[in-house]
């Protein structure tokens, strides 16, 4: 009965009012868009929130020129290895971090503009068989990579100018780490999810692996997006890209799970399910992004869905437009701005 109460109720009015189209970016290059993101960029003494678009072979920076008008100011041309994703780096300025590779990430690069002569720069941060990467606060990157015999979980610390300042390793679990999340309000804590559906907790400063906890078998292949600690419990936002519909709680795209790190016991706090009418095997979600208490994801139908994770409600739906299906959904630096992208390079900015 409790689970049934958590199944979202969607109202037509909510769908229309929650997302307002603010502006649109249309890249004239016909390359296939692979990712979109937002980055703070300072030029001529003023700091602006800019948009980064990534195609397989080029990454472009767009700055706001006028209301509803964006100008492409820089384009970095990449080599033969395709760009896979943009890696957001919180609290940084004038730095774009990207991952390149074929099926998996093979290298991580930083893209910059030289302050001396305005030339475009690229620098290699890491190479390897990289399974997961996340940009952390204080210009740090965490990544998990596999060699033939072992897994390495590594922190790379960057200077303000994008140089590698320091690096150290975290104790790896036996199984491969698939995703990382910082623990909000706990500077030295990091969590990860693994291939066997466990949550691991590290002490970032000492590199210690503090705890490994089972997520449970009900929802395999969980991906962690965000975590915060409160009242002695660790709350983790998990997504289930391949979730199957269950009678007890619908088809949860996201779950908030409370873990007691002392006992490794856990309980589900909130389910954020696919909207009614969109449930069923044919519409698991493709990929999602979580910021603050909001989650956005592209469904295989080409619709973007937005949820309030604390309410467990789907609060907005963006159906595919006449120009085509949505392929990308990313929050800008906070959850008041949603970047919605199509494969042809069109990016729409929505106020949420």
């Amino acid at each position: 009965g409790v689970a049934e109460d958590l199944i979202p109720v969607l109202l037509d009015g909510v769908r229309e009012e929650s997302l307002q189209l603010v502006s649109k970016i249309k890249d004239s290059c016909s390359c296939c868009a692979v990712d979109v993101g937002a980055v703070w960029w300072e030029a001529a003494g003023s700091r602006e929130l800019c948009v980064v678009t990534a195609g397989e072979s080029a990454v472009s920076l767009w700055r706001p020129l006028a209301p509803d008008h964006w100008g492409k100011v820089h384009t970095w041309q990449l080599g033969e290895v395709p760009v896979i994703q943009i890696i957001p780096l919180p609290d940084t300025c004038n730095l774009v971090c990207i991952a390149l590779g074929d099926l998996e990430i093979g290298e991580i690069r930083l893209l910059q503009v030289s302050s001396e002569n305005d030339s475009l720069k690229q620098s290699l941060v890491k190479t390897g068989n990289i399974k997961a990467v996340l940009g952390l606060k204080d210009r740090r990157l965490v990544s998990s990579s596999r060699t033939a015999h072992e897994q390495q979980v590594e922190i790379t610390s960057l200077s303000e100018t994008g140089r590698i300042k320091d690096g150290w390793t975290l104790m790896p679990p036996e199984e491969t780490v698939l995703a990382f999340a910082e623990v909000e309000g706990m500077g030295d804590a990091l969590v990860g999810t693994t291939t066997v559906n466990s949550i691991v907790i590290w002490n970032l400063k000492t590199g210690q692996l503090l705890k490994k906890m089972r997520v449970g078998y009900s929802y395999p292949a969980s991906i962690c997006h965000q975590a915060y600690s409160d009242s002695g419990l660790l709350f983790v936002v998990l997504s289930h890209p391949h979730a199957k519909e269950s009678e007890s709680c619908g088809n949860p795209a996201f779950r908030v799970v409370a873990f007691n790190p002392r006992t490794a016991r856990s309980t589900g706090v909130m389910f954020s399910s696919l909207p009614p009418g969109l449930t069923g095997r044919q519409v698991p979600y493709l990929e999602g992004d979580v910021k603050d208490t909001s989650a956005a994801a592209v469904l295989t139908s080409g619709t973007i869905a937005v949820w309030d994770l604390l309410l467990g409600h789907c609060t907005a739906l963006l159906p595919p437009g006449p120009a085509g299906s949505w392929a990308l959904a990313r929050w800008a630096t906070n959850s008041t701005c949603l970047l919605a992208g199509q494969r042809d390079g069109t990016v729409c900015l929505y106020r949420y």
Binding site: T206, L210, K211, S231, F259, N260, R262
Partner: peptide, 23 residues
């Protein structure tokens, strides 16, 4: 959820686990 579901809760879990875990 109640404490009985999750076992005894400690507000200092991070410091305690850091002190107990192998370096």
């Amino acid at each position: 959820c109640s404490e009985s579901d999750l076992g005894p809760i400690s507000l200092n879990w991070f410091e305690e686990l850091s002190a107990e875990a192998p370096p």
